[in-house]
């Protein structure tokens, strides 16, 4: 068939060779986009199913800490730092549900460059954990390799100080998946940094949903107890 097509090119001299190339390229690009999106959707679904139980445990623990006044710190490098910022926004500025204090430790360029310049890049997050955190807080680190030194150091510092520590990893999980300093590690099994980040977003969203459900349940229980005991819930 392709041989036939090749041999009829001379019959259509008005069709530019490049025009044919462009049409073929656009068709290929569109098919490639759909294929990659399917891979991403399957990976996201598989990750959610694999970690549902542990996500629930982590979400309940987070909700408990928020109820006791805990704050959330998120951090990552590069694209993952922006995903960490999106996750922090989801917790502190949600479109619906209860807002809780959360911020990305990469957000302040003065702090990040001061620490990077003065004490070393591997300490940009751990020094902030030392400065900001109390034992009731939560730390979430996002790394597609699971090996970023600055993240591992911050998670260890956080664990040392009593924080709940959560890691989002990729590939084979790296040192994040084996570290005793990480309470919950969610490793997305893929070799593609892009597909891993897309699943990280989905896992983060699931985690937030569980925290919201848990918080609503806690609030409902408190209010029910309050209405049974006039004079207050204490």
């Amino acid at each position: 068939m392709s041989e036939l097509n090749q041999n009829t090119d001379f019959l259509y001299p008005f069709i530019e060779g490049t025009e044919t190339d462009v049409d073929a390229l656009l068709t290929d690009l569109a098919a490639s986009a759909r294929g990659k999106a399917e891979v991403s959707a399957r990976l996201q679904q598989a990750s959610l199913e694999e970690y549902e139980e542990d996500l629930r445990a982590a979400g309940i623990a987070m909700s408990d800490r928020f109820a006791r006044g805990g704050r959330l710190y998120t951090f990552g490098n590069g694209g993952s730092s922006t995903d960490a910022a999106t996750l922090a926004s989801l917790f502190c500025r949600p479109v619906r549900g209860r807002a809780v204090p959360a911020w990305s430790l990469a957000a302040d360029q003065a702090v990040v460059t001061a620490l990077g310049n003065d004490v070393g890049f591997e300490l940009i997050f751990s020094r902030q954990v030392i400065a900001h955190s109390r034992p009731v807080d939560v730390a979430i680190a996002l790394s597609t390799s699971g090996n970023s030194d600055d993240l591992i150091r911050a998670l260890s510092e956080a664990k040392h100080r009593g924080l709940l520590t959560i890691g989002f990893a990729g590939h084979e999980g790296g040192s994040m998946s084996t570290s005793e300093d990480v309470d919950h590690c969610f490793t997305v099994h893929s070799q593609s940094i892009h597909r891993i980040q897309e699943s990280h977003a989905r896992i983060g969203f699931r985690l937030w949903s569980i925290v919201q459900e848990e918080t609503e349940r806690r609030v409902a229980d408190l209010m029910a107890a309050g209405s049974r005991a006039p004079g207050g819930i204490r």
């Binding site: 390229l25 690009l29 569109a30 999106a37 959707a41 679904q45 959610l48």
Partner: peptide, 23 residues
């Protein structure tokens, strides 16, 4: 429902739009 990822994240029309935008 919250644990369901839509199976089609990029449909045919959107994939065509992505292709044109990329070129």
């Amino acid at each position: 429902t919250t644990t369901e990822v839509p199976t089609t994240l990029i449909g045919t029309d959107l994939s065509d739009d992505l292709a044109s935008a990329s070129l």
